[in-house]
Design a protein around this nucleic acid. Sequence first.
DNA 1: TCCATCGCATTACCTCAGCTAATGACGAAT
DNA 2: ATTCGTCATTAGCTGAGGTAATGCGATGGA
Lengths: 295, 295
Amino acid sequence: MDRPDLPLNALRVFEVIMRQGSFTKAAAELRVTQAAVSHQIARLEDSLGVTLFLRSPQGVIPTDEGRLLFPVLEHGFDAIARVLDRLDRRRDIEILSIGVNTTFALGWLMPRLDAFHAAHPEIDLRISTHNNRVEILREGLDMAIRFGIGGWTNHEMIPLLEAPLAPLCAAAMAARLRDPADLQHMPLLRSYRSAEWPGWFGAAQTPCPPIKGAIFDSSLALAELAAAGAGVALLPVVMFDRHISQGQLVQPFATTVFAGRYYLAWRSDRVSTKAMNNFSRWIVAQCRQNQAPTV
Amino acid sequence: MDRPDLPLNALRVFEVIMRQGSFTKAAAELRVTQAAVSHQIARLEDSLGVTLFLRSPQGVIPTDEGRLLFPVLEHGFDAIARVLDRLDRRRDIEILSIGVNTTFALGWLMPRLDAFHAAHPEIDLRISTHNNRVEILREGLDMAIRFGIGGWTNHEMIPLLEAPLAPLCAAAMAARLRDPADLQHMPLLRSYRSAEWPGWFGAAQTPCPPIKGAIFDSSLALAELAAAGAGVALLPVVMFDRHISQGQLVQPFATTVFAGRYYLAWRSDRVSTKAMNNFSRWIVAQCRQNQAPTV
DNA sequence: TCCATCGCATTACCTCAGCTAATGACGAAT
DNA sequence: ATTCGTCATTAGCTGAGGTAATGCGATGGA
């Protein structure tokens, strides 16, 4: 791509303002005066020919253009900062950046983070979440955890956990479910993968009703909806142990269907660091134990 | 994320060196002297505590650390440049950034680009390709074309083309195929989606043999392999019209299986620009005609 | 073997992008 | 009215990042 001169410093100022909500606060974060920030934005707006902020006495409000610009910058700078962190050999602690499937991060990894830090205090773990779309190289990550059925070109993969799917719903709704066929008249919440419900009904040897309604690309959104009584969601049960033990979600039927498993993956063209090896060993051992979260 | 002070200008210098292969050429691209480049990299290496380049009389060779840093920077700066382009209201021409599935880009869009430019000379089309993993917001895109079965949270989607899959292979191999059952003893090339071959054998009412071998996440890689005689690939036929009419690939059986379609998508929380509307109208009309590429 | 050539490094110096400091103007809250 | 919290503007300063000139090492053809 043919790049014009990117006003990178001005863009960083812009990004901080968007997070802080005001020129003054951004100036404080950047350790410069408010005037410097005002200058930078004035020049940036001028060079782009676009107004980025509406000024108000309470702070600034981004325009449509500003809102368009922000996510790209935030993501880009984050990725750059992450990869720089990793290169910084002066640190004693090792930094390990992992992109983790959101469901796995909240349902499995988070409750065990304390255990990991206790076992490896020398590793500073940086976790960024994704909904199964992640590119290790571009995002400046060391490794990633994703759900699937394997087969990721140029990546080494270790299977971590089987995660069979089963219907989960609120207790009130579960009380009305005696038989899988009862589900045919319930609202069934759809994930992004449309083959899942038919697969489960197949396993339950019950005809599958047509599935309608909105689609959500996150198991967490589905779990929230199900817990709120909006319907029945097909979810990886092991990731919702806590919800189940706390009564927010109930599994009405034992039948499960295989849809994939969680994998730990990393680029096969990279030399593994000590931190990568240690994390890999730790998480494989933890998954073998397959124990409930310790929280 | 807690960001250290990002030495953004130095990083941009680094990125240019990686592309140009030498300090001197990078200096030319940046329109500064070679000494300035040398300074910037020396300071960057010093502050990171890491050597980024091995110097040689033929130019510079990146170290492992340098190779790690590059893709993140390249991608980040590209995304930033793209979104800035879009904001630049001083231009008369409108810029439209589209992330396009690689197969669709090469198999369908590329042969029709001339027609689009003729119809809309005022739109400057920027295409970046992806293998079906794309985030419109983060990448600074206006729209995206992807393959799937619909259902993308927070996105509007228009179905463009059905793209049923059929086996394709080299002519020499096709000569040995009389009946779908003959495929059971042929090397079957695997895509990332493992359900596809079983789906096709189902449609052909033939038992599906176990599928082995490497997995490729790109239809183009599969097509290359198939054309080279390495095996039979299950591919969206409409995207390989040219290969077929030129005899590089042959479709031995008429049976197809549905695996998804191509969609045009954009964020539902964004106001559509005139360029977005025009492109959308144009591509929908082109797909309706469903004609062979004009090349 | 010698010299021309093509790399990056180093040194000393310069210059302007980007800062500070001080002040002004405006709107909201009380 | 007054006070406070915004951002804007002005004038002037300063050091990050540039230039120019030179050095040094490796390569390769005569």
